[in-house]
Simulated assay, not measured.
Amino acid sequence: MIKPLFVFLVFASQFVYAQQIDADLLRIKKRMDSVKQFSASLVLDLDVPFIKMPTKTAKISYATGKRMEFSSTDFVMLPKRGLDFSLSEIFKYPFITVDRGLEKRNGRTLKVINIIPTTNQSDLALATLYMDTQAVRIVQSEINTRKEGSYTLLMNYALLKDILPAYVEATFAIERLKIPLNFMGKGTTIDRKKMRSMETKTGKIKMQIKNYNIKY
């Protein structure tokens, strides 16, 4: 009786593990994987109480298997993490998902899941995704990393059929910036007295994305 019981337990554990990846997330991943590369123009505004920065422009590019890249002649993009809405880092290492139910937002019903890495190789500690399962895309992600803090991405789309967003808003902790604030380009001023007096230092990067050139 011991051997059949052992075989049953092994089979059951494998079956449970196979069920731990959310089917709707896999549908979204498959759709995102259809985009082999893209480039686009970016209009960026920084919303930080103690920083005044003029509107900036940049270029973004992405190719399968690589991180999204940002380039500009006027400023250094910040932070290094938290602006990649391709979410390639999430799928880089093995993980499981936990269904957190449904949530209503702006008249839409979104499915909420947690993503938990199963290996220490991943810098991701926990991610919460809000998925529009009808449009097969992610509307919001809350990412907690092991070394570089947490950030939130809010994504809006121009058309129902779009898989890539027309607007992305990233919220992040200023303390986690890895570059001096002086390197944010021409015309930027910093109120250091106000910066030191603030207990919670958070900011937002607002990105309008235009002129996509997508290759499938």
Rank of each mutant, 00 (worst) to 15 (best):
F38P: 09
S39M: 00
A40F: 10
A40L: 08
A40R: 00
A40P: 13
L42Q: 11
L42K: 03
L42R: 04
L44R: 13
D45Q: 11
D45M: 06
L46W: 15
L46F: 15
L46I: 11
D47R: 09
D47C: 05
V48E: 07
V48F: 09
F50L: 01
F50Y: 12
I51K: 04
K52T: 11
K52G: 01
P54G: 00
P54V: 00
K56C: 04
K56F: 05
T57A: 06
A58H: 07
A58T: 05
A58D: 06
K59M: 12
I60Q: 08
S61R: 02
Y62M: 00
Y62S: 01
Y62N: 02
A63L: 06
A63S: 12
A63I: 08
T64I: 07
G65A: 02
G65F: 06
K66F: 14
K66P: 14
K66N: 14
R67A: 15
R67Q: 14
R67P: 15
R67F: 15
M68V: 09
E69P: 12
S72Y: 04
S72C: 03
F75G: 04
F75V: 00
V76Y: 08
M77T: 10
M77C: 08
M77L: 06
P79S: 00
K80D: 13
R81D: 13
R81E: 15
G82C: 04
G82H: 06
L83K: 07
D84M: 02
D84I: 03
D84R: 02
D84W: 03
F85N: 01
F85P: 09
S86D: 11
L87H: 12
L87A: 01
L87R: 02
E89A: 13
E89F: 15
I90N: 07
F91E: 04
F91R: 00
K92D: 09
K92T: 08
